[in-house]
Amino acid sequence: MTALAAPRAPGALARLWAEADAVQRAALVLALILLALALLAPLVAPFDPNAQSLLARMRPPAGFERARPGHWLGTDELGRDILSRCLFALRLTLGLALAGAVIGLVLGGTLGLIAGLLGGRVEAAVMGAVDAQIAVPFTLIALFVLVLFGNTLPVLVIVLGLYGWEQYARIVRAETRKLMAMPFIEAARAAGAGPVRIARVHLMPNLVSPLVVQFTLSLSGIVLLESTLSFLGLGVQPPTATLGAMVGVGRDYMPNAPWIVIAPAVTILLVTFAVQILGDWLRDRADPRLRPR
């Protein structure tokens, strides 16, 4: 997120802030706070996230009856501190989501761009792969890969990175082709501009908008996918905390110990909120047609 939100120069930050409305400012502040908490998790977490207390399981958050002093958000199904686990989970989940989304963007975007620019057999091959990917349930592909190579962290990152590559490819290729058909591109071509130059000068600026939207969507999508994999028992290995693993395990306790799910679910909500608001904002700013308004 920093990469996206970081201003190009110190002065730009102030300008950005001035332009933002209240919701966008809130999202920006929230994003920075979440990022800081994720980075500083080992310093701010009150407890070791994996330290169990078997005889103090499922204690409610502070203020409720039976609450355990010091455990502000209560304890989970093994008596671990939920606040500490949430902080470490946020750290790992953000890392996984960013890594996955970047891999997907680079992989899918490159393939889509190549397909759109070169056309012909290359395009047919790429789009064939896209079609095949779309047609086979991604959950199953993830399942295969995780079962085959073991559900370790590196494998999980690769699986999450594969998520959505075909959407980037489709979008980039479609936009590329739409633009290639436009008169000014034909003019540029006629003027002797090569494909790389056309891509850099004419396509990239027009691609930013749909890609940013897709990136934010897939960032949240990956957070949710990771939780679905946990639901199926294929997420990170216990006792490692991710937000997905926490809600995946916690769902069974919703009737009697809802706080186990609420804390990570709200954290997921905050992450997706910040990402999507910022995504929309960046998109609107990047869109030349909307800027004058």
């Binding site: 969507l217 949240s220 949710l224 939780s227 679905t228 639901f231 997905g244 809600v247 995946g248 769902r251 919703m254 009737p255 799910v261 679910a265 997921i268 909500l269 997706t272 909120f273 999507q276 929309d280």
Partner: peptide, 22 residues
């Protein structure tokens, strides 16, 4: 309008499902 739409994408669907069930 965007906030309403956003909520649906902000929570894992099994959490939403169990919540609705409860």
């Amino acid at each position: 309008a965007m906030a309403v739409a956003f909520l649906g994408y902000a929570v894992p669907n099994f959490v939403l499902a169990v919540f609705l069930i409860l």
